[in-house]
Design a protein around this nucleic acid. Structure first.
Lengths: 247, 247
DNA sequence: CGTGGTGTTGAAGGAAATCAAGCCCGGTGG
DNA sequence: CCACCGGGCTTGATTTCCTTCAACACCACG
């Protein structure tokens, strides 16, 4: 992000900034909700299904995921969380987690003082609107995901996911080169789009054959995003939806 | 619902009451947000994908659905909306709808004054918590739906949906007999669980053969809910999750 | 009395799961 | 240093589930 005041380098602020202008005072206020930083190793869980919720957090760097394990051992990944994404707001409300959240790469996060955040929102409706916006957007992503898993052909759905993740990375200020690289194993991708690991692998092969992506050991790199968009039938209004920011 | 103060008969109040006690004053306050009643015929849309959002509403009676149409003409139903369910809160935030909402049966609804609601929440945190709770719960339902569509065998997923809908009806005070009856066509069910109409029909047949459901022309009636729960591998903690109500 | 939404059936083809190996590579420990 | 191991990836063969296509019966409705 160019020309941002310094305090807005805090990821939640960066994210909200991408939605609408927030000034230095707002950014500072957000920053004041940060209690401490924490760290998770790849594979470690932040919450597990059925556990009591820990405090709310914001991801500072690295990749995490919301997921659910089924009795037969399979796993559905509900969403990926990157820099600026928040989790655990429901802690104020729900007694127990209805899904697990785990680290994919090494993750740095900030713990938030949710009482203070709530207070802040009460006194600064504009911030509240922006926060609500980001929650609404996450729900929109979830809905789109459901549509994809339910109705889209698997290849299209895979392409859609890859484009979405690159797009989301750029939106929180990650540079275009880095944003092309998605640190996901093939199992993770398969579990996200709801197909078997083997089928997921074969789908990736066809994308690779057409030069749309390359794959490293534990990552997928987007080589031809426009091509992927075509396969995905990407709708530019998705994620682009702008907030009504004045009030 | 037995022994409720009169004002709490307003559906949103009934719904929140099911989550935690709300008193007559709270209920009256909620009621004061109602602007007017409206009505939709079966098949009519409340919002269509891409449209500007109309005001927020609460369903008073009847069935509606959130859904998305794809370019190939197919449809994914995201969620069903019944008495007490709200829609269009995102109107405050999002410029355009990212999904359509349509009436399945004839629907009565109340339009809400969202500015007033926001104001109310600001002054009555307890109400805010309850409202947030209901939003969080809807998101939980959406996540569960995604898990089902992605990972559960279609028959299990169908059974799960039927049980969930009956359960949700009872929770908003609909009597057990009525709650067993789900006014859904087979196409609607199929579109919700992400299978073709024909396959959906065959799944219903197997449920019928085992005496778990009967079907009228445009409805499914649950005959053996415990049996369905077994097939669905129903988890009793789902939807039962209780809010942390004191603060 | 047609017409269209709804439900039902059969047959055939396709998409994806499952089963079963085997490879590559990085890390660990003997 | 090398052997071994395990996580990630790849491939082929087989089976299962689900879609598609094509009819047709059945009300409910105008």
């Amino acid at each position: 992000m160019h020309g941002l005041p310094n305090a807005t380098q805090e990821p939640l602020a960066v994210k909200l900034h991408a939605l609408g202008r927030i000034d230095e005072r707002d950014a500072a206020a957000l920053q004041s909700c940060v209690l401490a930083e924490g760290h998770l190793e790849p594979g470690a869980d932040f919450v597990r299904f059925g556990d009591a919720y820990p405090a709310a957090i914001v991801i500072l760097s690295g990749w995490a995921m919301r997921y659910r394990e089924l009795s037969d051992g399979s796993r559905q990944i509900l969403n990926f969380l990157i820099r600026g994404d928040a989790a655990g707001f429901a802690a104020t409300i729900l007694a127990r987690a209805d899904h697990s959240i785990g680290a994919i790469t090494s993750v740095r996060y900030a713990r938030l003082d949710s009482a203070r955040l709530l207070d802040l929102v009460g006194h600064n409706p504009r911030l509240g609107v922006l926060l609500f916006w980001s929650v609404a957007l996450e729900e929109a992503v979830l809905r789109e995901h459901l549509v994809g898993v339910g109705k889209r052909p698997a290849l299209q759905q895979l392409a859609h996911l890859l484009v979405e993740l690159a797009e989301r990375q750029r939106r929180v200020g990650i540079d275009a080169q880095t944003a092309r690289c998605l640190p996901l194993t093939q199992v993770a991708l398969a579990d996200a789009i709801g197909v078997s690991e083997i089928h997921g692998n074969r789908l990736l092969q066809t994308l690779r054959r057409d030069g749309l992506v390359t794959t490293n050991r534990r990552a997928v790199v987007i080589e031809d995003e426009d091509g992927l968009r075509r396969i995905a039938r990407w709708d530019d209004t998705y994620l682009h939806r702008d907030a009504r920011l004045c009030r």
